[in-house]
Design a protein around this nucleic acid. Structure first.
Lengths: 153, 153
DNA sequence: CAAATTTTTATGTTAAAACATATTTCATTT
DNA sequence: AAATGAAATATGTTTTAACATAAAAATTTG
């Protein structure tokens, strides 16, 4: 459905605004679906995302600042987000011996088990989300989003 | 830049996940830009959006529930969000005479003035955001996002 | 028409995010 | 080597959002 009809805005919206609103609205729909999946497991999308970053390390610890860089949605306090993962037993931290300012974060076996448990569900939700798009549509959408992010000032 | 390189994930991500991650990440970039513009004016994207909904009414009041329907990102407590606009003097509310459960919300002259003041800035930010996209790209991106939202279960 | 149900908004409480500032360690400069 | 500045994380405070529940009015149902 066209965004003008969903949000009942004027149909003469400038094209740039239509793009932005479509993006924000679609994001909100997608976030809703993903949250519904994760809610059952008492974990936020952000926390889930950090866990996946940790797993991607295959045992090698990462510092907090590197986690921040790799997060889909950057945020001000990654410290407390990671602390929540630690409380849940999904991660551990210890100060880096080489540089004592840094903190090395690792995923625990419980964290790996947890991810294994919900991976299939998230994958399947993601497939549902893009289900109406052809292979070509998906590639094209990725291409356009990449191009948009080349924002010119 | 490709999402795999930005977020340093495995390059063998399933296509559906690439689409979703691209969407979430792009959204986060766009939100950041819009927030930078609005921050100076002490208003959140959500509040700004509700103000635009009110202005779109051209004087006719809207109920809270209709505002909720038209919000880009639905949220649980629209009451308090609108109350913040009222505190700022940008909106007013009174109970609907026909149906006393309902609350009629209207934009004030101060709200209209405020919107007029920042409209150009937001429009220009939105144009910057899509600046790298051709007219065709924009139309295509809108089409693909609309198609994605036809989520099949 | 009284009772039950639904709609619409509000509110109390808890959790998360944003913002500013502090603390510790390291790097750089003079 | 001491002083200064920068990097990395942590913490205190305030705002905002989420969740559950309540309250009031309207609608439906037996």
């Amino acid at each position: 459905m066209k965004i003008e009809n969903i949000l009942k805005t004027t149909p003469t919206l400038p094209l740039s605004k239509k793009v932005v609103v479509n993006l924000l609205y679609t994001n909100s729909v997608v976030i809703g679906i993903l949250n519904d999946v994760l809610k059952t497991y008492d974990i936020s999308i952000q926390q889930f995302n950090v866990l996946r970053i940790l797993r991607g390390q295959k045992g090698v610890p990462v510092t907090l600042s590197i986690i921040q860089e790799r997060m889909i949605a950057k945020m001000s306090n990654t410290t407390r987000l990671v602390d929540k993962l630690i409380i849940k037993g999904y991660a551990t931290k210890k100060t880096n011996e080489k540089n004592k300012r840094k903190i090395d974060i690792s995923i625990t076996q419980a964290g790996l088990n947890f991810l294994n448990e919900i991976d299939a569900l998230v994958d399947s939700a993601e497939q549902d989300i893009v289900n109406m798009l052809s292979e070509n549509d998906k590639l094209e959408l990725i291409r356009l989003l990449e191009k948009l992010r080349l924002i010119a000032n």
